Computed example of a mutant assay.
Amino acid sequence: MTKDRETKGKEETKERSAAAGDSSAESGIRSGGTAHQHRQGSNEAAAQHGQTAQASGTAAPRNEMDERFLRLLADFDNFRKRTLRERDEVRKQAVEAVARELLPVLDGMDAAIASCGGFDASSQVADGFRNILAQALSALQKFGVERIEAVRGQMFDPSLHEAVGITSSADVGDHRIVQQMRPGYRIGSRLLRGAQVIVSSGPGSGAGGSSPAGGVSSEGGRG
Rank of each mutant, 00 (worst) to 15 (best):
S168F: 10
D171K: 15
R130H: 06
P183R: 01
L192P: 04
R176F: 13
V125P: 02
G206Y: 08
V199Q: 03
T167E: 11
V164L: 13
G215D: 11
L191R: 01
G206K: 09
R147L: 14
F156M: 08
Q93I: 09
S122D: 02
A195C: 12
I132Y: 01
F119W: 00
E219A: 13
R147P: 04
P104V: 11
G188D: 12
G108S: 15
E146P: 01
E101M: 14
R186T: 08
V145T: 06
V178L: 11
L191D: 00
A136S: 07
G144Q: 04
F143Y: 12
S211T: 15
S200H: 05
Q124T: 13
A112Q: 03
V178A: 06
G214F: 05
E101I: 15
R176E: 10
E219H: 06
D88S: 14
Q124V: 13
R91K: 13
L140R: 04
V197M: 04
G188N: 08
R147Q: 12
G153M: 10
S159G: 05
R176C: 15
P158N: 13
G208S: 05
I113A: 12
G173T: 03
A150Q: 04
V199L: 10
V164E: 05
S189L: 14
A213M: 10
I198V: 15
M155I: 10
P183V: 08
V199G: 06
M181L: 14
E146R: 10
M109G: 00
S122F: 10
K92T: 08
E96G: 04
E149I: 15
K142N: 07
L192W: 05
A134V: 05
Q154M: 14
K142I: 06
A150G: 06
D120R: 12
L133M: 10
E96L: 15
I177M: 04
S189P: 08
L137R: 11
S169K: 08
L103F: 06
M109C: 10
A111Q: 12
A97R: 09
A195P: 10
R186F: 03
F143M: 09
G209Y: 07
V98T: 06
V216E: 04
M181Q: 11
A99H: 01
P183H: 07
G208M: 07
A121W: 01
I198G: 04
G173D: 14
V197N: 05
I177T: 06
D107S: 12
M181I: 15
F143E: 08
L140P: 05
I198T: 11
D120P: 09
H175F: 09
C116D: 03
E96C: 12
A99N: 04
N131W: 03
A94L: 14
R130F: 00
G204T: 03
A170V: 11
V151A: 09
G214Q: 08
M155L: 12
D88E: 15
F129N: 03
Q196E: 14
V216H: 02
P212K: 06
V172K: 05
V199T: 09
G188H: 09
